[in-house]
């Protein structure tokens, strides 16, 4: 005969089934069919050990206490965006006596003086410096993020994006002092975004060079 189905073999092992059918299965097993022997082996093991299972479930409150040791991760909420305010612009500063203030026109002039900008939001300072590059055709943006509520080294690795409509965003990381540098910038109006663990600092308009 062909191998009995698992259902029929189970009934056979549990002592059910009519005489002739049992005899046929017995005869097949006696032939040493390896598949049926394997099935017989695991079915008998299950039949033997299942009724001995004296396990139980512990009270739900005890299990809940154990599960509480591993905190449930909070649902990640979208980062808030903080709009930074301009506090200081060296191009807008009143001229000091005997000292010529830098003007936008200076940006195009050979005597370009670096422009210093300071933005603030929620106790976080973003200090920016725009310098004309050595090739005189492009600019460099140097920046530093300073915050008093966390060690400065914790800012390392946070991402700074510089956006401009016509080009893909430029991304750099803050170093251990919260500083970054982006070179080879053409004169444009850019948007700067600093992504911190607790929010994004946005500076919507930074004019680099004379636009």
């Amino acid at each position: 005969m062909r191998c009995p189905s698992l259902d029929r073999l189970t009934d056979y092992l549990r002592g059910f089934g009519v005489g002739t059918e049992r005899a046929t299965i017995q005869e097949h097993l006696n032939m040493g069919c390896p598949d049926c022997q394997q099935n017989q082996q695991w079915l008998l093991a299950v039949k033997r050990i299942a009724p001995l299972d004296d396990s139980f479930e512990f009270p739900a409150a005890v299990t809940a206490h154990i599960l509480s040791w591993m905190p449930t991760k909070p649902v990640r909420t979208p980062l808030r965006t903080l709009l930074a305010q301009l506090i200081f612009d060296s191009f807008a500063a009143p001229p000091l006596a005997e000292v010529r203030s830098a003007t936008m026109a200076d940006a195009q002039a050979d005597s370009f003086v670096a422009r210093q900008l300071l933005y603030q939001v929620d106790g976080i300072d973003v200090d920016l410096r725009i310098e004309k590059a050595a090739d005189a055709a492009s600019f460099e943006l140097l920046g530093q993020v300073l915050r008093q509520d966390v060690p400065q080294a914790d800012l390392a690795g946070q991402v700074v994006h510089l956006w401009q409509d016509d080009i893909p965003p430029i991304a750099v990381n803050l170093d251990a002092e919260g500083m970054f540098r982006i070179a080879s910038l053409s004169p444009e109006i850019y948007e700067l975004r600093v992504t911190l663990p607790d929010g994004v600092i946005a500076i919507p308009e930074i004019t680099i060079g004379e636009v």
Binding site: D53, S55, F56, T63, I66, L67, M70, K73
Partner: peptide
Amino acid sequence: EDHDAWATLVYRYQRL
């Protein structure tokens, strides 16, 4: 720190 993994492990072994 996968809470669901911890829960599965705890439930898997409670009867043992």
